[in-house]
Amino acid sequence: MPDAIRHINLSHVVLPIDNPVSDAKVLTGKQKPLSEMVMLFVEVLTEDGFRGMGFSYSKRAGGPAQFRHLKEIAEVAIGQDPSDIAKIYDTLLWAGASVGRSGVATQAIAALDVALWDLKARRAGLPLAKLLGAHRDSCRVYNTSGGFLQASVDEIKDKSTASLEAGIGAIKIKVGQPDWRLDLKRVAAIREHLGDVPLMVDANQQWDRARAKRMCRELEQFDLVWIEEPLDAWDAVGHAQLSTTFDTPIATGEMLTSVSEHMALVNAGYQGIVQPDAPRIGGITPFLRFATLANHAGLALAPHFAMEIHLHLAAAYPTEPWVEHFEWLSPLFEEQPEIRDGRMWVPDRPGLGFSLTPKMRQLTRESASVGRP
């Protein structure tokens, strides 16, 4: 008899950020500073006693909606064979079809999808990267959390130095301020401080096409690894045009919430770096679908956030990727990724290789249980 999903536990977790951060969306008045992460954790138990853990997240809004949507539809997964992840995914999509196949709907499903992949790898006794078929045991890693716009140049210099001393190999800073001259001054100062250390910048969608062209031209002098989200995330044509105009690569994709939204970039002729986010695109299942298509199109990969998941997915990508380091979620996991020599190393523990802390339980605002414990 095949195994079957017996129990699913959902946890709505609110994790404060000790020092709230601001990117360009805050300075242009579109959003408030980010002061907390809202997480949806899913824990799965099967009849044969196998377990898996997954998560998705939201920033500023949407966390309670993710929790409630999955709470409403999760029952359709009970009794299904946990190995049939794609089938379960489709079942969940149809259960909530009236609210669509992107956005909150698939971000809610993502947490369960990740848990099932974690379970499958744990049952095989393999790290997820090995289950998928790893191309490498480590990935290049860069830090973003120290480069937000509320920080002074001196603060960013100090945080960058600390990151490099901790073994991280590259630094990303935020740009996109209302006064573009300040952006150039900050980038110049950090480039001088870092020397030839790889440096990226992120405009968080705050330029129109004309300003983006001017800024990309000005930024060419700094030998950047990439310029991230210079345009609105859904401007596939604009990003494609920039990617074929400038020597500095263009990166985008983190805000997109379905495979079809990502494929709009490919279909527009985009030749930059893609940044799918497994919790946002809908889970590991759709992430892998897009990754296959992205590789076929010859695109480089740099998944956004969620390093605990993306380390494995990046390790399984055919060409050399980047993984983004954020320490924000560290209080929620007992284990921390190994970082040295500018790279993040795939753990040898089964599954994702991470387990939840008592702190995660303390920060749980609401939980729900489906099936038999």
Rank of each mutant, 00 (worst) to 15 (best):
L10I: 12
D18W: 10
S22F: 02
A24V: 12
L27N: 11
R51N: 12
Y57W: 11
K71L: 11
A74F: 08
D81G: 09
T91P: 06
G96N: 06
R101E: 04
V104E: 13
Q107I: 14
L112S: 08
L112K: 03
L119E: 04
L119F: 10
L126A: 07
P127T: 09
A129I: 03
K130Y: 15
L131M: 02
H135F: 13
C139Y: 04
C139E: 02
R140D: 12
N143F: 09
Q150K: 03
E155H: 07
S163T: 07
E165H: 12
A166M: 07
K174L: 00
P178D: 09
L182C: 13
D183R: 06
L184V: 10
R186E: 12
R186G: 01
A189V: 05
R191H: 10
G195T: 03
M200N: 06
R211E: 15
K213Q: 14
M215W: 02
L224P: 05
A233K: 14
D235L: 03
D235T: 07
H239R: 00
L242Y: 00
T244H: 13
T245G: 07
F246P: 09
D247A: 14
P249R: 08
A251P: 10
G253S: 06
M255L: 14
L256E: 02
E261D: 12
A268G: 02
I273Q: 11
I273V: 08
I281M: 01
G283W: 00
I284D: 06
P286F: 10
A291C: 00
A294Y: 02
N295T: 14
A302W: 01
F305K: 00
A306D: 05
H310M: 11
H312F: 04
H312M: 11
A315V: 08
A316L: 01
Y317T: 08
P321R: 01
V323R: 04
H325C: 10
E327W: 00
S330G: 14
P331G: 12
P331D: 00
F333H: 07
E334R: 14
P337L: 06
P337K: 06
E338Y: 07
R343H: 02
R343F: 09
R343I: 03
V346C: 11
G351C: 01
L352Y: 07
L352A: 11
R361C: 11
A368G: 06
P373K: 14
